[in-house]
Each structure stands twice: as C-alpha cells, then as structure tokens.
C-alpha cells in the first residue's frame, strides 16, 4: 500500500466522526505544528498516533501502517528523509503538553501519560525519578506518543443486541477484552451513549455512571464532556476506579457502571460489590483473547466465577473495533 493511500484509507467502519486533529495541534512545537496542519486534510481522519522521539524522525501511525514525516513536510517511508525531532522541540512540546505546569501533572507524570482536551492521550517516556523505591515522576522526557481519541457514533451497534438476555431482556454484565489500539474505549463510549439515551437495541434508557479514571471515555474538561456519552450519564472524572465505583454506588444510584481497563485487585473487588448490589457493570480489560484475561490473577477469577455474562473480544483484524467474538459466561460463542 502506498504512503498516500495509507493516509487516505478510511473504511466506513473506521470513519471517526467528530475527530479533530486541530485539538492536538496546539500541543505540538510551532514548526511541527505547521507541517502537520498542512497534512491534516489528508491524514486527519485516519491518523491514530503521532510519535515524537528525541533525535529520531517523527512517525505517524495509521490504521493500516506507519509513515515518517519528511523534511519536505510530506509523508515518507525512508528514515533518512525523515524530519528529526530536536531537543529544543522536545522541550517546547513538554512545556505545551504540561501547560508549563509540572506541579499540576504530578499524578499524570507518575502514570506516564497526560490526557489532553478531546480525550487524546500523550504517553511519555524519559528517566524515572524514584522515591523510596516508587516512581515519583519522569524527567528528561525522550519520547512522546500522542494517541488520537476516536469518537465513532455506532461503534457498539454490532455488540449491543447481544448484551441483553434473550429471555428476560435484562442488560447483562459485560467485559470488553481487547489489545491496545483495538477500540475498547471507543466501544465503551458508544455503549454509554446508546444505553443512556435508549438508542438502538435498547428498549429503554438507563442511568449510566462512568468512572473515567484517565479522562479518556468522556474527556471531561472543566466539568464538560468533550465527547457525547449520553444525556443520562454521570461522569466521575480522574477518580481511581475502585474508589469511584464505591462512591457511585452510594451516591448516584446507577443502573449501569462503566469503567475502562480494569485488572487490579481493588478494581475486581469493587466490581464484585457493584454486581452484588444489582448494578450492571460494563468494563474493559487488556488482552488478545479470553485466555489472556483468564490468566490474569484477579480478573481471571471474576470471569471464572461467571460474574460477566458477556465477553466481547475485539481485534484489529479489519481495523480497530473489529468484533472477533462475543461469548457468554460458559465461553460459548453467540
């Protein structure tokens, strides 16, 4: 596949509506910003990641491949023709991403990523600073990976009908399993929207509570979700999942709790608590398939105990958001 077609490749299922590369541009150093802005009409919809590595060519990752930003501002396959990201630009990028306020991002630097307005995420690598054996912060940032958030209305259309019990029509507890960049947050976001507004396969609307620990699902900025997650959705932003779920159970009387990337012991305990309280939990976890999820110490136990009645496996086979399989709690494909 040629470089230009790579950037223009937009299969209908992957069309990201409402994705604006312009949201990311202000965080790029002025020179790079100009070059990417020129390319934006071509790459805007299909760009998934922008990788900035100190002293290396700027790499752009699309759904179907990768290309470098050339010195002439065009896309290229050759490293030698690539536009090298300088130390000065790295410093500028870090200042822009952090809004010149490292103190406001202590937690984010500890986790290694910064959530940007619009739900985009800037992952960081650098030199770790430890305190009493624990990661305190990162310094000498050497790599930035800007992941473009996708808002795809209808991303959950193929999944939603399977999430209801065929007999009672009750919504079932669901775990979305997917490798990185396969669309699990996009699917969760659309599930929240459709369930909250009673759209598609839903017979009614639900009160949805979202624990958005990484501000990725709803991308809340100053209390306002930047991505539609439905009119009956309450969002607990930047709150640890386990603590957030318990808080929501007590305070918001949710019918559904949605959270992203579960796996720690405390997350699993909180899900346990929520499901036993009669609340439907829809969560996501990293993994290639069911076996991966089962192999994880705490999450595996939850699946084995059949807390999740539906397991949705996503892959990138036909691009992000491809549904590989939908299983019931007996691991039977539906």
């Amino acid at each position: 596949m040629g470089i230009s077609s790579l950037a223009k490749e937009n299969r209908p299922s992957l069309m990201a509506k409402g994705v604006s590369l312009e949201e990311v541009l202000p965080f790029l150093p002025p020179n790079l910003r100009k070059m990417i802005a020129t390319l934006a009409p071509t790459i805007g919809v299909s760009l998934e990641e922008l990788r900035l590595r100190l002293g290396a060519p700027v790499a752009l990752r699309f759904a179907y491949g990768e290309a470098f930003l050339g010195k002439d501002g065009r896309l290229t396959n050759y490293v030698a023709d690539g536009y090298l990201f300088s130390p000065q630009e790295m410093e500028q990028a870090v200042l822009l991403l952090s809004n010149s306020s490292f103190y406001a991002l202590e937690e984010e630097l500890r986790r290694g990523y910064i959530t940007l307005p619009g739900g985009h995420r800037a992952g960081l690598t650098g030199r770790a600073v430890l305190e009493k054996g624990y990661l305190r912060t990162l310094k000498n940032i050497s790599g930035i990976n800007i992941r473009i958030a996708r808002y795809i209305p209808g991303a959950a259309d193929g999944i939603l009908p399977y999430l209801f019990s065929p007999t009672s029509q009750k919504l079932l507890d669901t775990l979305v399993i997917s490798p990185p960049r396969a669309g699990k947050t996009t699917v969760l976001r659309d599930l929240a929207r459709q369930l909250s507004e009673g759209m598609g396969a839903c017979r009614r609307s639900y009160n949805v509570s979202i624990v958005d620990e990484r501000s990725e699902i709803a991308a809340v900025v100053n209390g306002m979700p930047q991505i539609p997650v439905g009119c009956r959705s309450d969002i607990l932003d930047a709150c640890p999942k386990a603590e957030g779920m318990m808080m929501l159970i007590r305070s918001m009387s949710p019918e559904i709790i949605i959270c992203d990337e579960i796996g720690r012991e405390e997350d699993v305990l909180a899900i346990h608590e929520a499901i036993n309280a009669g609340i439907v939990v829809i969560a996501s976890a990293h993994g290639e398939d069911c076996e991966d999820a089962l192999a994880r110490p705490f999450l595996g136990k939850l699946i084995q105990d059949k807390y999740f009645k539906r397991l949705v496996i996503l892959s990138r086979l036909q691009g992000p958001g491809t549904v590989k399989a939908i299983l019931d709690s007996e691991m039977q494909e539906l």
Binding site: N99, S100, S101, Y103, A104, E106
Partner: peptide, 12 residues
C-alpha cells in the same frame, strides 16, 4: 492556586 488547586500556571 498552585498549592491547593494545582491550577495550571496560565489560569493560576
């Protein structure tokens, strides 16, 4: 602003 609100510098 910095100590209690961790407000980003421009807003602070």
């Amino acid at each position: 602003e910095i100590g209690y609100g961790a407000t980003p510098l421009p807003e602070a």
